[in-house]
Design a protein around this nucleic acid. Structure first.
Lengths: 189, 189
DNA sequence: GGTAGTAGCCTAGCCCTCTTAGGCAAGCGT
DNA sequence: ACGCTTGCCTAAGAGGGCTAGGCTACTACC
């Protein structure tokens, strides 16, 4: 019998695609095996367990997003960079809902440290260079930025904004204006 | 045989408690049945399916949180109210991680409309009265506030802030300062 | 070019969860 | 006391997660 040629990389990619289609929670080892024309038990040769699959999706997504953000950030500074970062983030989340959701599972510390998450942190800090903030304000600002982005995207996806008719795109752009304003004029203690 | 006295209310409460202990995803019909000393199939007399269980946890959490926020908001205005709201929100999320996670599943529109979510929206708008914002700025500000709260709490829980040693409490308090500042000085177009 | 050895896949089988269908009995109203 | 409804049961099937153990296709090496 010819071999299916399953590798961890191919599995991860297929899983990510499946996640975007049917949601992370429905990414099952069995479904993946079917896609590869293989029995589910066979995948345990490549995978420790179902959880590892989700972790791998998360790591893939983190890396992909970091690449996008890096590309968007190239040659920009100040508010320009802020907006580019934010839009890259939001666009990725909307194009890849499953991968984005996978990013939200908490990785154990060593996995997280080895992930592209650190690149995100660096890039976020890079943006703040245009706003001349010193520690610990910088850390606080990074956390606020990330919170705003993630919160907005997350609420938008789960329908938290559906109560009001105003287009979310408009609110998004105004939120970025506000974020820029507060970073420019970061309150002192 | 004596009856177990299962009701939807008792089921929901037990499910919510279970969610806080082991996570929403592990709230299973079978586990719940065990807790009540009942066979799992019996619960389908009270529940349509497993999804309804999660929805009920979400609705319970929304109502509980709305109560807390209302109590925290009583007699306060301006930044005082903002901070009280924010802390009530964050405290609830940390005390009840499972319920909070359940709140994030998207309800179908009519269920959402009948939920305590509308009370949240009203209360959030009430806070903004102290900041004299008119539409559509008010909607944008509400969305930004909610995004910041949810984003921060969510990232804090999944360990997104563990990279940096700075205490999250400090960043939280400074984020609220920043939010107050930007609401006070909402940028014009 | 035969032959080890390993990598890749399979079958069998277990446990758990979700859900439906149909049955029996407890406790209510009359 | 007698039904009728309500609350629980057993039985059973469809999936999913995962382990143990076996066979086979390929690789490397003599």
């Amino acid at each position: 019998m010819a071999r299916a040629g399953v590798t961890v990389e191919r599995l991860t990619l297929a899983a990510a695609e499946l996640a975007d289609e049917v949601g992370v929670d429905n990414v099952t080892v069995a479904a993946l095996a079917r896609q590869f024309g293989v029995k589910d038990a066979s995948l345990y040769f490549h995978l420790k367990n179902a959880h590892e699959l989700r972790v791998r999706i998360a790591l893939l997504a983190l890396a992909e997003l970091a690449d996008r953000v890096a590309a968007a950030l190239a040659g920009r500074a100040g508010k320009d960079a802020l907006v580019a970062f934010a839009n890259a983030y939001r666009d990725y989340a909307r194009e890849h809902p499953g991968r984005y959701a996978a990013m939200q599972i908490d990785l154990d510390p060593e996995t997280a440290a080895a992930s592209a998450g650190v690149r995100h942190a660096e890039m976020t800090r890079a943006i703040l260079r245009g706003y001349r903030l010193s520690e610990p304000d910088q850390t606080d600002a990074v956390r606020m930025m990330h919170s705003t982005f993630h919160g907005f995207v997350s609420l938008e996806k789960t329908g938290g904004f559906r109560h009001t008719p105003r287009p979310t795109d408009d609110s998004w752009s105004r939120t970025l204006d506000a974020l820029d304003a507060v970073l420019t004029n970061w309150p002192s203690r």
